[in-house]
Amino acid sequence: MPFNTSPDGAQIFYKDWGKGRPVVFSHGWPLTSDAWDVELKMVADHGFRGIAHDRRGHGRSSQTWDGNDMDTYVADLAALIENLDLRDVVLVGHSTGGGEVVRYAARKANGRVSKVFTAGAIPPVMIKSDKNPEGLPLEAFDQIRAGVLADRSQFYKDLSAQFYGTNRDGSQISQGARDDFWRQGMTVGLKAAYDCVKAFSESDFTEDLQAIDVPMIIAQGDDDQIVPIHDAAMKAVPLVKNAELKVYPGAPHGIAGPYQQALDKDLLTFIS
């Protein structure tokens, strides 16, 4: 299995499928690069090089005690892209990974990035404050941390319903998809899972979005129960110089089922 060494010595696992223009994927919380397998195969089948890593503390990467914060996540991504000497990169990020690729594109890309695509992404900022009164209160994220500490196995099983919208009438998402969410979540170290809640909820990407100067698609389902669209995509689009909004009616946070089919079609068109 391939690993990349980060500046602090952390070993970051990554998948590298296909040949051609690189498309680099970043996953959400509490998942791994496995969440992007369908898309990795899709881009590789269409003449691109699909790359996805396990964020530190997640999956097969090092479970470091320190560094479970957004700036270190971005440094890990930068080290991977630089060590593989990737150029003309298309960045794709879901949820927490959306924040990761936005910050990388704004602060670390050094001309290596040509396009950005996010789905259900956390930018601009999730937490409620005087500057962001429509955000989610701190108590909501404290409940997530408490669930992770108390019984993360059951917490992930329960959370998968909101993640994939199976608590909505007419959902077409399988139990298998929910089981895979649990499987991936259970590979995440407890410290990483706990610390990452602060990283995805309190990081402010407003200035990062304003700094992006390459074409960008900001995609989101309008029934996202994890990252509410009115405080995410709807606020992010006006901040980016060259951004297009894609809204998927009735789609949840998790990329699966009909939502995945529609999003993958738009992604392939965008990178082609």
Rank of each mutant, 00 (worst) to 15 (best):
H253S: 07
S203G: 05
I218K: 08
V89L: 01
P137Y: 15
M70Y: 08
I271L: 07
S203Y: 12
I212K: 03
A52G: 08
V74F: 02
G111L: 12
E82G: 08
P258T: 14
Q11S: 13
I81C: 10
Y259W: 10
T64W: 01
Y14M: 08
A219P: 05
T96N: 10
R56W: 09
W65A: 07
E82V: 04
G18D: 00
A78R: 04
Y194S: 12
L267T: 06
V247L: 11
D266A: 04
V74E: 03
G59M: 05
W29R: 13
A232G: 00
E202T: 14
K198V: 15
A121K: 11
G47T: 05
G165I: 05
G9C: 01
A161V: 13
M42I: 00
R55W: 12
G57L: 03
N83S: 11
D213S: 12
D54V: 07
D69W: 02
D88M: 12
K241S: 00
A140V: 14
D54Y: 05
C196M: 15
D76C: 00
L138T: 15
A233E: 04
Y164E: 04
G97C: 08
V92D: 04
A79M: 00
N242K: 05
A10L: 01
D54F: 07
E139Q: 15
S174I: 05
V247T: 07
K198Q: 15
V23G: 07
F48R: 13
D69F: 01
V197Y: 10
A256T: 06
D130V: 14
L91V: 08
R112P: 13
R183Q: 05
